[in-house]
Lab assay of single mutants.
Amino acid sequence: KLETFPLDVLVNTAAEDLPRGVDPSRKENHLSDEDFKAVFGMTRSAFANLPLWKQQNLKKEKGLF
């Protein structure tokens, strides 16, 4: 399991300012399950079932792209 970080560490943070080991294209993977659901309004599995373009739009909207 990946290390999780608080939302404010990941949202609207440039790649070079992210904690070590965080993939800038997969910031959402480093949210706790609770934060993930609070941000996206759905579970990880529901998010994973969305088309890629919709996932990317949601990530942009939430500052996690």
Results as ranks from 00 to 15, higher is better:
residue 36 F to C: 00
residue 7 L to E: 05
residue 22 V to R: 02
residue 42 M to Y: 05
residue 38 A to Y: 12
residue 35 D to R: 01
residue 27 K to V: 15
residue 63 G to N: 07
residue 7 L to R: 05
residue 3 E to N: 09
residue 41 G to V: 02
residue 59 K to S: 03
residue 39 V to G: 00
residue 32 S to Q: 03
residue 35 D to H: 04
residue 43 T to F: 05
residue 41 G to R: 06
residue 2 L to V: 14
residue 22 V to W: 03
residue 8 D to L: 09
residue 56 Q to R: 11
residue 37 K to T: 12
residue 15 A to P: 15
residue 22 V to L: 06
residue 3 E to V: 12
residue 54 K to S: 11
residue 18 L to Y: 06
residue 59 K to T: 03
residue 19 P to R: 04
residue 11 V to T: 08
residue 4 T to Q: 09
residue 61 E to M: 12
residue 2 L to M: 11
residue 7 L to K: 05
residue 12 N to D: 09
residue 26 R to E: 07
residue 65 F to R: 08
residue 18 L to N: 04
residue 57 N to L: 14
residue 1 K to W: 10
residue 26 R to V: 07
residue 37 K to G: 08
residue 43 T to N: 10
residue 28 E to R: 02
residue 6 P to E: 07
residue 48 A to N: 13
residue 47 F to E: 00
residue 10 L to Q: 02
residue 25 S to M: 14
residue 12 N to T: 07
residue 13 T to D: 06
residue 53 W to I: 09
residue 5 F to K: 03
residue 42 M to E: 00
residue 39 V to R: 01
residue 22 V to K: 02
residue 11 V to A: 11
residue 35 D to M: 06
residue 7 L to W: 08
residue 31 L to K: 00
residue 28 E to H: 03
residue 30 H to G: 04
residue 64 L to C: 07
residue 39 V to M: 07
residue 51 P to S: 06
residue 17 D to P: 04
residue 11 V to G: 04
residue 14 A to P: 13
residue 14 A to E: 09
residue 53 W to Y: 09
residue 30 H to I: 04
residue 18 L to W: 05
residue 50 L to I: 05
residue 43 T to A: 09
residue 49 N to Y: 08
residue 46 A to P: 00
residue 24 P to C: 07
residue 47 F to D: 00
residue 58 L to S: 01
residue 35 D to L: 05
residue 18 L to P: 03
residue 31 L to E: 01
residue 13 T to R: 13
residue 20 R to K: 15
residue 4 T to G: 04
residue 55 Q to R: 08
residue 4 T to Y: 14
residue 37 K to D: 13
residue 17 D to Q: 11
residue 59 K to L: 10
residue 23 D to L: 05
residue 42 M to V: 05
residue 42 M to P: 00
residue 41 G to N: 12
residue 42 M to F: 02
residue 13 T to K: 12
residue 59 K to R: 09
residue 20 R to G: 10
residue 61 E to K: 09
residue 56 Q to G: 07
residue 10 L to I: 05
residue 48 A to Y: 14
residue 27 K to D: 04
residue 55 Q to C: 01
residue 29 N to P: 03
residue 53 W to V: 09
residue 13 T to G: 15
residue 4 T to I: 15
residue 34 E to D: 13
residue 18 L to S: 05
residue 19 P to N: 04
residue 30 H to Q: 03
residue 29 N to C: 12
residue 5 F to H: 07
residue 30 H to S: 08
residue 63 G to P: 01
residue 13 T to S: 14
residue 8 D to R: 08
residue 36 F to V: 00
residue 48 A to T: 10
residue 14 A to L: 11
residue 37 K to A: 12
residue 54 K to H: 12
residue 24 P to Q: 08
residue 34 E to C: 07
residue 16 E to L: 07
residue 20 R to T: 14
residue 14 A to H: 12
residue 28 E to Q: 05
residue 15 A to F: 10
residue 32 S to D: 07
residue 26 R to I: 05
residue 64 L to T: 01
residue 25 S to P: 03
residue 29 N to E: 15
residue 58 L to E: 02
residue 17 D to F: 09
residue 40 F to K: 00
residue 57 N to F: 12
residue 45 S to H: 13
residue 57 N to D: 15
residue 9 V to L: 13
residue 6 P to C: 05
residue 23 D to K: 05
residue 22 V to H: 04
residue 3 E to F: 06
residue 9 V to G: 04
residue 34 E to S: 11
residue 15 A to H: 11
residue 3 E to A: 11
residue 55 Q to M: 02
residue 10 L to M: 05
residue 57 N to H: 12
residue 52 L to G: 09
